[in-house]
Amino acid sequence: MKRTIFGNQLLPWLLLAPQLAITAVFFLWPAGQAVWQSFLRQDAFGLKTSFVGLTNYAALLGDAKYLNAVQVTVVFSIAVAALSMGVALMLALAVDRGLRGARAYTTLLVWPYAVAPAVAGVMWWFLFNPTIGILPYALRAVGYDWNHGLQPRDAMTLVVIAASWKQISYNFLFFVAGLQAIPGSLREAAAIDGAGPARRFATITFPLLSPTTFFLLVVNVVYTMFDTFAVIHATTQGGPMQSTTILVYKVFDDGFLGLNLGASGAQSVVLMGIVIVLTVVQFRFIERRVEY
C-alpha cells in the first residue's frame, strides 16, 4: 500500500472529519444512548427517570414474549438463509452448466436486489393478500385457505418468502463467481474418475465452494436479523400473535409503540452484541479463508 506523508498534522484529520462525524452522529451516539437507556426506567409520561442497573436485562430473560421473539428470529433466520441460499445455488449451477442465454438470465436475476425492502414487502403483501391476492386465489383452488392475518404459519411463510426473494439475487451473484473460480478441469477429472453429476457436486464442487457458502451464511444471517424490518413492517407487522415478531421488530414495537425505552434499549444492546460476534466471526474466517 502507498503511504502518504502529510506535511500538516491537521490535514489528515480534516479529511477524515466528515466520515468520523457521520459515524459519531448516526452510529456511536445512538448506540451510546441505547446502552445508557438500557440501565434506566421511565414512567409512562416520561416525567421521571431512574437508574435501575441490570433490571431491564433481567426482565428480558423472564419475558415470555421476548423469548418467543428469540425463537421466531432463529426460525426466520434459518428459513431465510436456507431458502435464499438454496434457490440461489440452484440458479447459479444452472448458469454454470452453460444454460442458453445465461447472460440475460443473470441480468434478470440481479434486478430484485435493486428493489427496496419495503417495496418488496408491499409487493408480496399484494400477491398474498387473502382478499385480492392472486396466490391465495390459486391456493384456494387446490383447497388451501391462505390467511396470513390469522394463521401464524402462513404469516411466517409470507415473511420468509418476501425476505428471501431479494436476497436470492445477492447470493446468486456470489455463487456464480464462486463456481466460476473452480477450474473446469477439476470437474472433468472427477467425471473421468467415475463420479456422476450428483457425486461430483457433493465431493468436489460443494467443498470447493465452502468459502463462498460460509461468507454468504454470515451475510444472510446478519441480513435477516437486522435488515428485514421493512419487509415485516410492510407485510405482517409482527403478527398474528407475535408469530413474526423478530428481535429487531420487537425493539421497534416496545420502544416506539410501547414507549418502553428501557426494555427497548436493553434489547438493542443484546442485538449489538450479536452483530459484533457475527462480524468478528466473519472477519476471522474471511481473513484466513475456509481451509480446504
Binding site: 477450474p183 478441469s185 477439476l186 472433468e188 477429472a189 472427477a190 473421468i192 468436489i204 467443498p207 470447493l208 480446504y292
Partner: peptide
C-alpha cells in the same frame, strides 16, 4: 485416465 495440464488435483 487423464493427466491434465494444471494437474487438476482436488485441492481439498
Amino acid at each position: 485416465a487423464m493427466v491434465f495440464q494444471n494437474y487438476a488435483l482436488y485441492p481439498h
